[in-house]
Write a protein that binds this DNA or RNA. Structure first.
Lengths: 114, 114
DNA sequence: GCGATAATCAACCCATCGGTTTATCAACCC
DNA sequence: GGGTTGATAAACCGATGGGTTGATTATCGC
């Protein structure tokens, strides 16, 4: 995978187990074993998923005795969502321009270059 | 990769080349060669990227003579962005509940169970 | 100190990814 | 028809991804 930040975030989101972990963390911090409980998967696998999420900046981990509580970090989510929204908006705009273009043509002025 | 829709969308977004292609398509439809022009990459590689985007539902392709014009499809972007926003909102809510909890404790009522 | 629990590290397996090269198909132009 | 251009298909390659087993570290409770 590519090592730029946005790519890491999207790649981290591209796995249902990791999305479920994030969904759980959105309800509040939790230690690793609790995060892994719903899944039919070894603790090591969960640990790997958490490392992916951590490298993407989506979770941060504390240390509290023998537990390593995980917290959701929203900043990368914002950047991801921001990228999507930005380009969706650009698409809407280009649709708008196309509409105007059609209107201009229908008004008999041909394709615009004013 | 997992074959559920959201995973395909996020996986498709997890590559800078594909994001650049989508960014270009947000400005309006384009044939394959034009999409590939900015990249130091064979046409076959671009074709593969487009297939990934198509399987994710992010682009649709027409046929117009020897060209295959590609269009951006926003519906999957909406679903992706929707997933993110939904869980970001859940996180804000849980922060809000935590704040209220703290207020309760500071008011000397201990941790709430009323 | 000792056993149990939380979590990670390391090595390995197999499938998929991103890219290439080579070959093929389809449509245009003369 | 024949050559050129647009686009894809197929086979291959090195790297990475998601999962496992086995061993290791650290902390708790007694």
């Amino acid at each position: 995978m590519d090592d730029d930040g946005l790519s890491r975030v999207f790649a981290a989101l591209a796995d249902p187990t990791r999305r479920a972990i994030l969904a759980r963390l959105a309800e509040g911090p939790a230690p690793v074993t609790e995060l892994g409980r719903p899944f039919d998967m070894t603790a090591q696998a969960i640990s790997k998923h958490l490392k992916v999420l951590e490298r993407a900046g989506l979770v941060s981990r504390g240390r509290q005795g023998q537990w390593r509580p995980c917290r959701l970090e929203v900043a990368p989510l914002d950047r991801a969502s921001g990228w999507i929204e930005h380009h969706r908006a650009a698409w809407e705009d280009s649709l708008g321009r196309l509409e105007q273009e059609i209107v201009r043509i229908q008004e008999g002025r041909g394709h615009a270059h004013d």
